[in-house]
Simulated scan of single mutants.
Amino acid sequence: MPSSALHVARTGLEAQDTRMRVIANNLANVGTTGFKRDRANFATLAYQDARVAGQQSSGETAYATGLNLGTGVGIQATTRIDSQGSLQTTGAALDLALDGDGYFQVSLPGGQLAYTRAGNFSRSAEGQLVTAQGYIVQPPITIPEGASSITVAQDGTVSAVVAGNAEPTQLGQLTIASFANPGGLQSAGDNFLKETAASGQAQIGAPGEAGRGHIRQGFLEASNVNVVEELVDMIECQRAYEINSKMVSAVDEMLKNANQTL
């Protein structure tokens, strides 16, 4: 029995340690543009049936309830919470936020597509619209040298006043990717996500169509991390860790006394 309790306590420690790392990562990214918080999901481990409900208790009666002993708790999965973060005004022409569902498309080195909610874009030396890492936004938008009054409409149409022209010139249109199961997207680091079999294939379309969000120029989407909520979760996690730690110490002391007595 003590060894079984020790196993339960140790699995609890491992689960709370993972949960603490998830919370710490959320808090570390509270200022990351477009970041989506994660949540640790727990699941009970296998149960040992010491007595099954309905088992005969005598020749004429049966137990109304069973006796089941749990073997602890484990991390089932981590879930990304894709709720909308608040939109913060920057006034910068190439800062874009998605007001609603969907993702900007980015071409990673090697040609693989990645997806992000972070729209803090800029103009490269070649005039292309790129991320902070220099990755080209898809579909490619080239902003000519000397262009001014750059505007990005809610439907993704990019225009600018090009030298020699009095009227704005359309430079292209940004499209947005949506997924049947956004939670199935896999993190690729640097605030990028990759398509997986669980997410389904990207459905590409214009902003504002088929449930996709609109583009808001001069805004950035803030992280959806709620600092107060995360701190409360951290305190709860610390208390659970302390309880399991005390359980481990108590069982160790019981086993020590038993060994010394025997």
Score class of each variant (00 low, 15 high):
Asn41Trp: 08
Thr79Leu: 14
Val73Phe: 14
Gly85Ala: 07
Gly54Glu: 10
Gln84Ile: 04
Gln88Ser: 06
Asn68Ile: 05
Gly66Arg: 05
Asn41Lys: 06
Ser86Phe: 01
Gly110Val: 04
Lys36Asn: 09
Val106Glu: 07
Ala40Phe: 08
Gly100Thr: 01
Leu67Val: 15
Leu67Asn: 11
Ala97Asp: 01
Lys36Met: 10
Tyr63Cys: 02
Ala64Leu: 12
Arg39Pro: 00
Ala114Cys: 05
Ile81Trp: 06
Thr79Cys: 01
Thr90Phe: 00
Pro109Lys: 06
Asn41Pro: 00
Thr71Gln: 15
Gln105Tyr: 03
Leu69Asp: 03
Asp99Lys: 03
Gly72Ile: 03
Phe104Gln: 05
Leu87Asn: 02
Thr78Asp: 12
Val52Arg: 15
Asp82Asn: 14
Gly111Gln: 09
Gln112Trp: 08
Val52Pro: 05
Leu108Tyr: 09
Asp95Gln: 02
Thr61His: 07
Thr44Ile: 12
Ala64Glu: 02
Ala93Thr: 08
Ala50Thr: 07
Asp101Ser: 15
Gly66Asn: 04
Ser86Val: 15
Gln48Pro: 08
Leu108Thr: 07
Ala46Leu: 11
Gly74Arg: 11
Leu69Ala: 09
Thr65Ala: 14
Ala43Gly: 03
Leu94His: 06
Gly59Trp: 05
Thr89Gln: 14
Ser107Glu: 14
Leu94Trp: 07
Phe42Trp: 08
Phe42Leu: 07
Ala93Glu: 09
Ala40His: 08
Leu96Asn: 01
Ser58Asn: 13
Gly100Ile: 02
Val52Gly: 04
Leu96Ala: 07
Arg51Lys: 11
Thr61Cys: 00
Asp49Val: 10
Arg39Cys: 02
Gln56Asp: 06
Ala40Gln: 04
Gln76Arg: 13
Gly102Arg: 09
Ala62Leu: 01
Gly100Leu: 09
Ser57Trp: 11
Gly85Arg: 07
Arg51Pro: 03
Tyr47Ala: 05
Lys36Gln: 08
Thr61Gly: 01
Gly54Phe: 12
Gly102Asp: 12
Thr44Phe: 15
Gly74Met: 10
Gly111Pro: 10
Val52Ala: 13
Gly91Tyr: 12
Ala53His: 02
Gln84Met: 13
Phe35Tyr: 15
Ser58Trp: 11
Gln55Ser: 14
Thr78Pro: 14
Phe42Gln: 04
Ala64His: 10
Gln48Tyr: 15
Leu94Val: 05
Phe104Asp: 05
Gly74Leu: 02
Ala64Arg: 04
Asp38Met: 11
Phe35Thr: 12
Gln105Glu: 00
Lys36His: 06
Lys36Glu: 09
Ser58Asp: 13
Leu113Val: 13
Asp82His: 15
Leu87Arg: 11
Leu98Lys: 01
Ala64Trp: 00
Gln105Ala: 01
Asp99Cys: 03
